[in-house]
């Protein structure tokens, strides 16, 4: 069953288009990574899915309902981001204690244990927390809701290395114990790659790729060889990225296809790419790289 079903979703702020014809489906009980560069529209998409903002056109369905102003969606989904606020008049402990009234599947034990593990101060106010602690608290809150659709928007912003690792581990363990749909947005795919089953890659407000992790890895390859050869091999192909390695050699990234075998036979140096690299090349602005700036 589809947890999320988006058809041609558009959203604009003033003159810029934040989302353009976003179409994808998300089936349940998967951890999906929402990957994109800064400003790709990840946050906007998540806010629409959580019913916080309204999309301009197209159709958004979460649990078969339009999430905007829908109680069922609100009760079964949560968006954890660094803009989450809680009243200053309540301590962290009181916030956690008032949550079960709203979230029927709230896991008090998990919340308490994580809270103790991360050594948060139960008498502290949410806004007085440091950036990292606030992110940790939000994460604890989000995980403990056990919402059928749990969304994290850049959850590890501000967390230190150790907490990040712990967070991913906690997420995975809790997911295995209570399978549900989890959507994590990040611009560091490499950091969350080991968690993900699916990747939803968006760029400039458009879905570029929606596939499972292995497919993404297979999607493109890098090839290195003499300049002329590389140009021959990639002729007519969709070259995602190319650069001069030195005087004679050229490096190119392109979509995997049948020509590849021939290239291999002709002595091309073919390199497999990581999912992270594929995503990076697919969303790069130009064929060149940062090196071109310094030419």
């Amino acid at each position: 069953m589809n947890v999320i079903d988006c058809q041609k979703v558009n959203k604009g702020y003033r003159r810029t288009n934040a989302l353009e014809d976003i179409t994808f489906q998300l089936t349940d009980q998967k951890i999906t990574g929402l990957i994109g560069r800064n400003g790709a529209g990840k946050t906007t998409l998540l806010k629409i899915l959580a019913g916080l903002t309204k999309h301009k056109s197209g159709e958004v369905n979460v649990f078969g309902k339009n999430p905007y102003n829908n109680l069922l969606v609100s009760a079964n989904s949560i968006l954890v981001d660094d803009q989450m606020t809680f009243p200053d008049s309540l301590t962290l402990e009181e916030i956690l204690r008032s949550a079960p009234a709203f979230y029927k599947k709230w896991d008090t034990q998990l919340a308490v244990r994580l809270f103790q593990y991360f050594k948060l101060d139960s008498k502290q106010q949410h806004s007085k927390l440091s950036k990292g602690s606030r992110a940790t608290f939000n994460m604890i809150f989000g995980l403990s809701t056990h919402c059928e659709l749990t969304m994290f928007d850049e959850p590890t912003n501000g967390m230190d290395e150790a907490v990040r690792t712990d967070f991913y581990r906690a997420l995975l363990k809790d997911y295995i114990a209570h399978p549900r749909s989890i959507l994590i947005s990040s611009h560091h795919l490499s950091e969350i790659e080991h968690l993900l089953e699916d990747i939803l890659l968006i760029h400039k407000g458009k879905v570029v790729l929606h596939a499972d992790l292995d497919e993404v890895k297979e999607y493109a390859v890098a090839i290195q060889g003499p300049v002329a050869d590389v140009e021959k091999w990639t002729a007519g192909e969709e070259v995602l990225h190319s650069k001069r390695v030195d005087e004679q050699k050229q490096y190119a990234v392109f979509k995997k296809n049948s020509k590849l075998e021939r290239a291999r036979l002709e002595g091309a140096n073919i390199q497999m790419l990581t999912a992270s690299e594929v995503c990076m090349y697919m969303t790069s602005e130009s064929k060149g790289g940062i090196d071109d700036v310094f030419k």
Binding site: D88, S89, L90, T91, E94, K123, Q125
Partner: peptide, 10 residues
């Protein structure tokens, strides 16, 4: 004077 004191005190 918005948030002075804890919930209990309030």
């Amino acid at each position: 004077v918005k948030y002075k004191g804890s919930l209990r005190l309030n």
